[in-house]
Design a protein around this nucleic acid. Structure first.
Lengths: 336, 336
DNA sequence: TCTGGAAGAGAGAGCGCTCTCGCTCCTATA
DNA sequence: TATAGGAGCGAGAGCGCTCTCTCTTCCAGA
C-alpha cells in the first residue's frame, strides 16, 4: 500500500468541510469563520499536508519563477563557484524578488551545451530570465523563444540589456592613476572576444590619447594567473612602470602578486587599480583601489524589469561605475 | 481581446491531430509517425508554443525542483554575494543536477525572517532542500515539515548532515606549521556560536596539547576585518609569533594584510595557514596555504542524496579536508 | 484469402488545486 | 413581522497538460 501524500481533499474531509472552504481557510481568504479556519489548520497539521505547488500554479494561473542562466566557459561546471561575480548576481536578484512570491531558479551550462539549455530554459521560464555570459547569438535565440529576457553586461541587440559603463569606468580609473602623478602607466586587458574587456580597453585608449601617454598593454584571461603573467611580461618590457590598470580584480590580484615577487612596492613603486570591486579586491594585499561595478543593483534592475513585464526589444539600462580608493593607490588609505 | 498563450490544444488543432498525439510528438514518445511529428513541430513553432511547466508537472507527477536555502546573518541580503562559499555550493548542486531535469531554486533570507522562509520553502519544495547556515532549531523545523532535507556543515541532529572534518583539518593545518619548525603558533578562530568554528578550535587545542605549545588565540567574525583586527591584537601581545592558523581564508586574507602592515614577512617571519581554499586564499598576497574544504563535492553529495530520496533522520556524510600548500608557508611554492 | 500483431492515432479520465456562482442561514432594519 | 444584505460554505467547472485504453489501419505470414 503506497503512502500517498495528503491532498486538500484529505484535509477537507478530516476537517469536515468542503475543498473550497479548506482552500479559503488555508490561504487566508475571506469567507471562512474563525472556528472553521482553526479546524482546517488542525487537520492540515495532523496530516502533514503540503499543497502541491504545481497544482496551485496551474489552478491559480500565477506563474512564479525567474530564471538565471549562466554560461560557463570552463567545461568544468564547478569552476563557476570560484567566480566572484556570480554570487553577486544571485544576491541582487534575490533582493529584487524579496517580498514577492516569485522564486529564483539557477541554471549553469557549459558552452558546448548552451544552445540546448537556452531552448529548455526559454521554454520553461514563466516570469522571464536573466542571461549571464550568454553569447549574443544565443541570447537572441532565447529572446525569439521568450521575449521576457535581459542580458547582463553582454550586449546582444535587440535583447534587452543591463550594462555598466565600462568605457567611462576604465577612463576614470586611468585618470586616477594619472592624477596621482603616474606617467608610465600600463594596462592589463581581458580577452578581446569579451564585450566588457573591449569597452574597458576603449577607456584606456581614451586616456592614453587625452593625456598623451604611451599605450602599454597586455592581456590576461580574466583569471588570476592571466593577470600574474601579464604583469610579469609588462614588468620585463617596461621596468620603469609606475601605474597599472587591470581590467578585473581577479587579474589585478595576480598582478599584485607578480609585482611583489619582482620586488616592487605597492603603491610606492607601482600604483594599481582594478575593476569590479569584487572580493578579490579586498583580499589582495594591499587591498585594491578599483572601479565599483554595481552588479547587485544591475541584477536587481534586470529582475524588476522582468517582474514588471515592460521589456521591449532594445530596452536598455546603463549603470555608472565609481572609483573606490584603497591602499593600492593611496598609501594613506585605512586597511581596516 | 486578451492574447492567450497557445496551449497544446491549439498546436493539436493547427496540426490536425489530437492533443494526445501532439503531446507524444513533442515529447519524443513512441506512437507518432515521422510525418505527424514534423507537422506538430511546425505547428508548435508557428504558434510559438511553450508548454506550461505547472500543467506538465501536475499531469505527469514528476516534481522537479531542489531548493537551496541560505540564511544570511547580515541583514543586508546583498552581503551574501561577496561570500566565497555560496557560489561554490551552487556550483556543486548544479553539477549534481546536470543531466537530470531537476531545477535548482535559490532562497536567501535574513535571520529575522528565516522561520517564515523555512516554512514556505518546506511547504513548496518537491525533491527536497539543502540548508546552508540554518540554525539547528530551524533546520529541525524544516525537517518536521519536510523530511527531504540536508544541512550543509551545520550539525542539527537528527537533520541529515553533510559535513567536513573540521577538527581533523585544523589539526592538520597546525601540525603543518609545527612540522616546518614554527613554535610560537597562534590561532584566529571564528565566532563561538558557529559549529565549524568550534570544531576547528578543537583541532587547534588538540595540537596545542599534543605538541606542548602555548594556546595563543583570538577571534574574528569570519570576516576579513575580523581577521585583520585579531591578527593585529595577537601581534601586539605576542610580537615573536612565527606561525598563524586562521579558521577561514577570508579572515586569513585580513590577517596577512595586518602582518604585512606590521612589517612581518610571510612566510619568513610568520607562516600562515587558512581554511576553506576559497578565492580569498589565491587572491591574498602571498597566496595562502589552506585546508581545502570540498564544498562543491559536499553540495553535490547532499543534492544526490535528495535525488535518491534515501534520507533518514540521522543520515550523515563526512568529508576529509586536505592541506594545500602555497607561498604563505612554503617560500619555494610557485606563484603561478 | 484469412489472421494476428504492430503501429498510429483519438477519446477521455484524471493530476491537485483555485475560484466563481449560488445556496442557506443569521442579523439588522423598516 | 417581513425583508434586504452579508457572512459562511459547497458544488462544480476548469487550469493545461500526461497517459491509459481503445479503435482503426495496414502489412507480414500461413
Amino acid at each position: 500500500m503506497r503512502h500517498r501524500r495528503p491532498t486538500i481533499e484529505d484535509v477537507a474531509r478530516e476537517a469536515g468541510v468542503s475543498r473550497a472552504t479548506a482552500s479559503r481557510a488555508m490561504n487566508n481568504l475571506p469567507g471562512a469563520s474563525t472556528a472553521t479556519r482553526a479546524r482546517v489548520a488542525r487537520a492540515a497539521g495532523e496530516l502533514g499536508y503540503r499543497p502541491d505547488p504545481a497544482a496551485r500554479a496551474l489552478a491559480s494561473g500565477r506563474r512564479t519563477a525567474v530564471d538565471l542562466l549562466v554560461v560557463n566557459y570552463d567545461p568544468d561546471l564547478v569552476a563557476i563557484g570560484g567566480h566572484p561575480y556570480f554570487g553577486r548576481v544571485i544576491a541582487g536578484m534575490t533582493t529584487a524578488l524579496d517580498g514577492t512570491d516569485v522564486h529564483l531558479r539557477v541554471h549553469v551550462t557549459p558552452l558546448d551545451r548552451a544552445a540546448a539549455t537556452v531552448d529548455s530554459v526559454a521554454r520553461e521560464t514563466t516570469v522571464g530570465a536573466v542571461l549571464v555570459n550568454v553569447t549574443p547569438d544565443l541570447a537572441e535565440r532565447f529572446r525569439r523563444l521568450c521575449p521576457q529576457v535581459v542580458s547582463l553586461n553582454t550586449p546582444a541587440p535587440p535583447v534587452p540589456l543591463v550594462a555598466s559603463e565600462n568605457t567611462a569606468g576604465a577612463y576614470t580609473a586611468l585618470a586616477h592613476l594619472h592624477r596621482i602623478g603616474r606617467r608610465r602607466i600600463a594596462a592589463i586587458h581581458g580577452p578581446a572576444v569579451n564585450a566588457c574587456a573591449t569597452s574597458r580597453r576603449a577607456g584606456h585608449l581614451g586616456l592614453v590619447a587625452d593625456a598623451g601617454l604611451p599605450d602599454l598593454a597586455d592581456r590576461g584571461e580574466f583569471t588570476r594567473e592571466g593577470g600574474y603573467r601579464a604583469a610579469a611580461r609588462l614588468l620585463a618590457l617596461h621596468p620603469d612602470l609606475d601605474g597599472l590598470f587591470v581590467a578585473s580584480d581577479l587579474m589585478a590580484a595576480g598582478a599584485v602578486q607578480a609585482l611583489t615577487a619582482a620586488g616592487r612596492r605597492i603603491p610606492d613603486d607601482v600604483a594599481v587599480v582594478g575593476f569590479d570591486d569584487s572580493i578579490a579586491a579586498i583580499c589582495s594585499n594591499p587591498p585594491l583601489s578599483t572601479m565599483r561595478l554595481p552588479v547587485e543593483e544591475m541584477a536587481a534592475t534586470a529582475t524588476r524589469a522582468l517582474l514588471d513585464g515592460d521589456l521591449a526589444p532594445g530596452w536598455l539600462s546603463g549603470f555608472p561605475v565609481g572609483l573606490v580608493t584603497r591602499r593600492s593607490t593611496d598609501p594613506a588609505a585605512a586597511l581596516c
